[in-house]
Amino acid sequence: MQKRVVFNNRLLPYALLAPQILVTAVFFFWPAGQAIYQSAFIPDPFGLKSQFVGFGNFEFLFSDPYYLASFQTTAVFSAAVTLLSMGAALWLAVMADRIIKGSGAYRTLLIWPYAVAPAIAGVLWLFMFNPNVGLVAWYLNAIGYDWNHVLNDGEAMGLVVVASAWRQISYNFLFFLAGLQAIPRSVIEAAAIDGASFWKRFWTIVFPLLSPTTFFLLVVNIVYAFFETFGVIHTITGGGPQQATTILVYKVYADGFVGQDLGSSAAQSVVLLVVVGLLTVVQFRYVERKVHY
């Protein structure tokens, strides 16, 4: 799509573009190029000179059991966050959609957690489940369950999943509700008159018509779980116990800044660039298809 009528001016468009291109070049392309460049070298321990290793860092990464474990952790984590936040949001949206009066009030009460930073969400959940003073941990202990996410892998994973999903429910709720409200009432009423029960109507009519929204949210939630949950992990578990909650983004940080293994961290950045690229392609294919609906 293009404008038929445009201004003719030689220098002005470049001047208008300059600030964004400058910032993009300095803080996006230069660092991304650096990541690709550094991924082909191993710096010596004193940081004085680097040795060219080609794809050595990548070969090392993909034979490193910790890195492969981090892939698996990320997959489990993302799947759990996506399922939990989308499932809860869909349930709440279906309920809110049934209400004619007052759904606005429910919406207000459900959307605000989106504004809570992942790191703050992490601190809130950490406090409730803190093994020494946490309210929920204490009551779990009182009924005979010994909660300690500092030592237990599964509990640590469960806690970061719930804290991450918690704030994302708002977002999913908003889009599911909009999707539900866009379904023509006449279609649902026709099925109701034919005697289809609520759940039958939901699975045979509503859910299939909602699939574009569901697919869109699936991609958004995976991207969220992959890249925006750093704050949750960093505040609650710090990747532990024993790397049980070290997702890929956390590992880039831990290896690069804490471990000072710059070659490996750069190679991991490059791998993540590829992952983001793939997810973006998936998202755009979806956008293209949406146009043809």
């Binding site: 070049a25 803080f27 660092p31 880039v252 950045s269 993540l272 660039l273 690229g277 973006t280």
Partner: peptide, 24 residues
């Protein structure tokens, strides 16, 4: 220029964190 800007859609800061820090 359009595509140069468009490409940044794919680069969250968490992904290129070490080199971006070095630049800053």
């Amino acid at each position: 220029f359009f595509w140069l800007i468009f490409l940044t859609l794919m680069l969250p800061v968490e992904v290129r964190i070490v080199p971006t820090y070095e630049v800053a």
